[in-house]
Computed example of a mutant assay.
Amino acid sequence: MRRLFFAVDPPDAARRDLDRALGPLRDLPGAPRWGRPERWHLTLLFLGAVPEPLVLGLVATAAPAVAATPPIALRLAGGGRFGSLRRPQVAWAGLEGDVDPLVALAGRLAAVARTLGLPVEDRPFRPHLTLGRWRPGRPADGTLTDRLAGYRGPEWPVREIRLWESRLGAAPAYTVVASWPLGAKDPLHAESGPTP
């Protein structure tokens, strides 16, 4: 079984800009456990455990779903939380720009996964970038992300969608399984990464 997810990776400049904006919040009381900027992804679909025999089919059937996506541009903007103010769970940054085509792509990727018999959460896709998580039972300030309300990062063109594998452990590792350029003329074209 492989833990897989589809994602858009913000470019380094966008990550650095958001990381600077988070600087004043990082060490405040009640802050979440912040994620490392180099691991920030805009997850389009988390699949959890995918049986090895289905991985090649997933890569092949995702290609046309990605190719149907027009060129899009995004920017990280604003912030929020999942969970209540008193018991926040996830701190996130929002998105602006061509969000509707991104939502449509996430829907097509979910449909691809369902055709392969993979379980997909039955809830609307809410585009966001997870910044950190609050630990249960620890002091938490759910208002911290409100301070990102006026944040607007640099806009960037989305050039590709990636299928990542996540390996849990003391030091979680991420490996690119495949990637597809947006709007590829050859919808079967996918760049495969290492698949140990």
Rank of each mutant, 00 (worst) to 15 (best):
residue 1 M to L: 13
residue 1 M to C: 06
residue 2 R to L: 13
residue 4 L to T: 04
residue 5 F to I: 03
residue 9 D to W: 13
residue 10 P to A: 10
residue 10 P to R: 11
residue 13 A to M: 02
residue 13 A to G: 04
residue 14 A to L: 01
residue 15 R to N: 02
residue 17 D to W: 07
residue 17 D to C: 12
residue 24 P to F: 09
residue 32 P to Q: 12
residue 36 R to L: 08
residue 43 T to E: 00
residue 47 L to T: 01
residue 48 G to F: 02
residue 50 V to F: 05
residue 51 P to Y: 01
residue 53 P to L: 08
residue 55 V to A: 02
residue 56 L to E: 13
residue 57 G to N: 08
residue 57 G to D: 12
residue 58 L to G: 04
residue 58 L to H: 02
residue 64 P to R: 11
residue 66 V to E: 06
residue 71 P to R: 15
residue 74 L to D: 12
residue 77 A to N: 06
residue 78 G to E: 13
residue 83 G to E: 00
residue 91 A to C: 14
residue 93 A to F: 03
residue 95 L to Q: 11
residue 96 E to C: 07
residue 103 V to Q: 11
residue 104 A to Y: 03
residue 104 A to R: 15
residue 105 L to S: 10
residue 106 A to M: 11
residue 111 A to L: 05
residue 111 A to S: 14
residue 114 R to T: 06
residue 119 P to L: 05
residue 119 P to M: 04
residue 123 R to L: 03
residue 129 L to M: 14
residue 129 L to T: 06
residue 131 L to T: 07
residue 134 W to Y: 10
residue 134 W to V: 09
residue 136 P to R: 15
residue 141 D to H: 05
residue 141 D to G: 04
residue 150 G to L: 14
residue 151 Y to E: 00
residue 156 W to F: 12
residue 162 R to V: 06
residue 167 R to G: 09
residue 170 A to K: 14
residue 170 A to S: 13
residue 178 A to R: 08
residue 186 D to I: 10
residue 186 D to S: 12
residue 190 A to V: 06
residue 192 S to E: 14
residue 192 S to W: 13
residue 194 P to L: 11
residue 195 T to I: 08
